[in-house]
Design a protein around this nucleic acid. Structure first.
Lengths: 145, 145
DNA sequence: TATAAAGTATACTAAATGAATATACAATTA
DNA sequence: TAATTGTATATTCATTTAGTATACTTTATA
């Protein structure tokens, strides 16, 4: 039940870009990488995937850089996580094929699938915009144990 | 976002035991293992942890075996999953220590923690009893895509 | 009381995944 | 055309996961 570092960095990179969304000034890879404590090649691995899924746009050349490609309201955590982790499913019952020989006996199976769905729903609720907004509204932590 | 096989087998083993809860007849390890398609030593690795957390009780000797140690209503998926996966937390920010130097700048952090909490809540809602019951009530899958 | 049936415990191996680094290449604009 | 920027791939290392193997302990009962 652990997120990979790439998902986490991916979100943080997107949050950087979301903050300057609207301006047409691309952020330089170098700047983002060093702000987030990443080496440039590692940063590239992450952003290349974000680009492949068209969450970011790139501007090449000597004043190039990266831009958020869609409005922050339309980018959810679910989308981000699935880029790096693959489908959010707690169990992969014979990947690809839809029928498992044991399925009929397997009460457990449907429980995991239902939970996976719930998790996906929760992830889909959170957008870049909502994160940025929440962060601006409060300097306090949003929850207390 | 993948559950380990041990969590999954753990649940299935517990469901076996839950079905015969109330009778005082212990289920033999061999029987459970072969029913679930596990080798005996591998089964043992799993059940030993369930025992260590006192979810199951054992009866030793030549008519021994395993019994559910608590009522199925009181055993939740959260408890089972945490036995095998550790704490359900999407991110581990400097394990052990509570403060992370980057935390203040890290809007992402609180999002992951909130989601982790939600997931824990959902896991806690499902008990062995509810799974067994749901499974008896319907031969149909409980959801449709 | 021997023994077979049952549980306990630990060590090892192989495969997969994850995290990070290194290096070489391609595109673009001042 | 050179500097700046992004693109792509391959390699290394560490960790985790899954599963196997083996040796040992307990206990009911024949």
């Amino acid at each position: 039940m652990n997120l990979s570092t790439k998902s986490r960095y991916g979100l943080r990179i997107l949050l950087c870009l979301a903050k300057s969304y609207g301006t047409d000034v691309p952020l330089k890879g170098k700047a983002i990488a060093s702000e987030q404590g990443l080496t440039e090649p590692y940063f590239e691995q992450i952003i290349i995937k974000l680009k492949a899924h068209s969450l970011v746009a790139t501007v090449r050349g000597c004043h190039g850089g990266y831009l958020l490609n869609r409005s922050p309201e339309t980018i959810s955590l679910l989308e981000i996580v699935e880029i790096f982790e693959g489908p959010v499913e707690l169990v992969k019952c014979r990947k690809g094929t839809s029928v498992c020989p044991r399925q009929s006996e397997c009460a457990a199976q449907s429980v995991w699938h239902k939970l996976s769905r719930t998790i996906r729903t929760e992830l889909a609720k959170v957008t870049l915009a909502s994160i940025v907004q929440e962060n601006e509204n409060s300097d306090q932590p949003e929850y207390v144990i």
